[in-house]
Amino acid sequence: MSLPRATSGVIVQQQDGAFFLLDTEGGEVFRVNETAARIFELCQSGTTLDGAVQSLAKGLNAVDQEPDIRADVQRTVEQFQELGLCEPSPSL
């Protein structure tokens, strides 16, 4: 199953080592860490949950942490949806 799609108008911006999600339509700004920024970018690309977990695990050299990563991705995308940063979708 795919991750929920990112809401249009929300962009990722990196500035001086910090990551921000900017809602250019709603005017809200969220400061996020690199993990959250990566997960949001995966939502933008329409990646599947499995693909996102594998991508994060490989990218961060944490293949042995896949169960924890999966749980964190699910929690994070639900938070994105609550904040209006991702479109609503059926529960993962």
Binding site: V29, R31, N33, E34, A36, L60, A62, Q79
Partner: peptide
């Protein structure tokens, strides 16, 4: 090492 995602509503 994986670090859990963190989101904080807000900067420079």
């Amino acid at each position: 090492m994986y670090t859990n995602a963190q989101i904080v509503r807000v900067v420079l």
